[in-house]
Write a protein that binds this DNA or RNA. Structure first.
Length: 426
RNA sequence: GCGACUAUGGCGAAGUGGUUAACGCACCAGAUUGUGGCUCUGGCAUGCGUGGGUUCGAUUCCCACUAGUCGCCCCA
């Protein structure tokens, strides 16, 4: 094998692309219904954007970025996530001045993280995400969550679970952080190395640690929910209230922290309940990030959004045995025997295509029998056969592949007759 | 970044330190001189991830590399 695909990337081949197209179509259609418009940002950004936006204590920044220097000496990075770029575009194009507020955007495209590939984890993967900028109405939190759930429902996913939490506002977070440090400080040496480092950088993340999960300090650790100030608590209650109104089931998990620094107030994850979804069980993750826009130099603007992985979505659908579109067959395959017939076939195939039919013909010089076989494999509903006989009589032989029935149709009427029989024409 | 397992034709999959690398599917051809899906017959890897080493001899043993799968970390 002279060349191999780079590690952690994948080709999506015909037969598979139809599934992607289907998901993309559903997603776009629902976004339209919810009033979201598409935004497209570049695949790379200045590295600084992610340092500031995502947070330099995060794993994404510390060890997962595809960073490079271009010929002009600029430090650039293949985007590891979509929110910071969208926020950058929001500020750069002054969308905060747009008459339509809040600004509701969606995006889809490849993201890049330098990680060891495993089940449901790739170095290049495709995310779909939405961002709402300019509103701190808890109803927006509910809308965003509803949209994510709606997408999964629409695609037929059954076994999913919505988990939500609140990190509160800055004051609440600060109070909680101090409580955490007080709680762990004296006995931090009992926890793993990572957690010892986290005590300084991001004590919240200690709660998320899988290694120390069983430690008694974890069970007794102060819950963020107990440190929410009145305002934050009221906000969270509102979000839960709206979710209840929408009849969207959820569970609250006070340890749902999430890996990106910019989150506050509502955070949520949608996970697959199926067995065997270890690393890839998180289908969708999101939350509110009221400080982000300001952090990257824009006006104080609240925001909330989520991102989901198309790969994981498809894997979950596959695992649940959900219905996904398969390759569509041809309407018609034109079989030709002989030079003259071949010429007529070339002409006819084009004519039928112009008439809106899905049509193909043989390009390998195969015999009639093999051409029929090819037609069968391509799922052709009809085969049009042309040989000396047909050329003489001026009528092609049309075979209905399902029934095996045959009939003669004058060349001039083929387009019309086939269009009618295949339902491609009114 | 750490760990485990794996790597044979287009796909799946057996196999052995030594003359011709099973089998199944797919594909091609023929039986059928103009007709697919069924059946039968025949064809289809000078090659066993890449590079070294051990050996008289390696696809088979050893090492490295690459890649895949799964787990940890973390996440989508």
């Amino acid at each position: 094998m002279p060349f191999q695909i780079p590690r952690g990337t994948q080709d999506v081949l015909p037969g598979e692309t139809e599934k992607w197209q289907h998901v993309e179509q559903v997603v776009r259609s629902l976004c339209g219904r919810y009033g979201y418009e598409e935004i497209r940002t570049p695949i790379f950004e200045h590295t600084e954007l992610f340092l500031r936006g995502v947070g330099d204590t995060t794993d994404i920044v510390q060890k997962e970025m595809y960073t490079f220097e271009d010929k002009g000496g600029r430090a650039l990075t293949l985007r590891p996530e979509g929110t910071a770029p969208v926020a950058r575009a929001f500020v750069e194009h002054k969308l905060y001045g747009s008459p339509n507020q809040p600004v509701k955007l969606y995006y889809t495209g490849p993201m890049f993280r330098y990680e060891r590939p495993e089940s449901g984890r790739f170095r290049q993967f495709v995310q779909f995400g939405v961002e709402v900028l300019g509103s701190s109405d808890p109803a927006v939190d509910a809308e965003v969550i509803a949209l994510a759930m709606h997408i999964y429902n629409e695609l037929g996913l059954q076994h999913i679970r919505l988990v939500i939490n609140s990190l509160g506002d800055l004051d609440s977070r600060r109070a909680h952080r101090e409580a955490l440090v007080r709680h762990f400080e004296s006995r931090i040496h009992e926890l793993c190395e990572d957690c010892q480092a986290r005590l300084q950088t991001n004590p919240l993340r200690i709660l998320d640690c899988k290694k120390d999960r069983g430690h008694e300090l974890m069970a007794t650790a102060p819950s963020i929910l107990d440190y929410l100030n009145d305002e934050s608590r009221a906000y969270f209650e509102k979000v839960k209230h709206y979710l209840a109104v929408l009849d969207i089931p959820f569970v609250v998990d006070s340890r749902l922290v999430r890996g990106l620094d910019y989150y506050n107030h509502t955070t949520f994850e949608i996970m697959s309940d199926l067995e065997g979804f270890g690393a890839g069980a998180t289908l969708c993750g999101g939350g509110r990030y009221n400080g982000l826009v300001q952090e990257i130099g824009g006006p104080e603007t609240p925001g909330i959004g989520f991102a989901l992985s198309i790969e994981r979505l498809l894997a979950a659908l596959e695992a649940e045995g959900g219905e996904l579109p398969v390759r569509r067959g041809l309407d018609c395959y034109v079989v030709a025997v002989g030079e003259q017939a071949k010429t007529e076939a070339v002409r006819l195939v084009y004519e039928l295509r112009r008439a809106g039919l899905r049509v193909d013909q043989d390009y390998l010089g195969r015999k009639m029998k093999a051409q029929l076989k090819a037609a069968d494999r391509l799922g052709a509903s009809f085969v049009v056969m042309i040989g000396d006989e047909e050329l003489e009589s001026g009528a092609a032989t049309v075979k209905d592949m399902a029934s095996g029935e045959q009939m003669k149709v004058p060349f001039g009427e083929l387009a019309h007759v086939l269009a009618k029989r295949t339902g491609r024409e009114e």
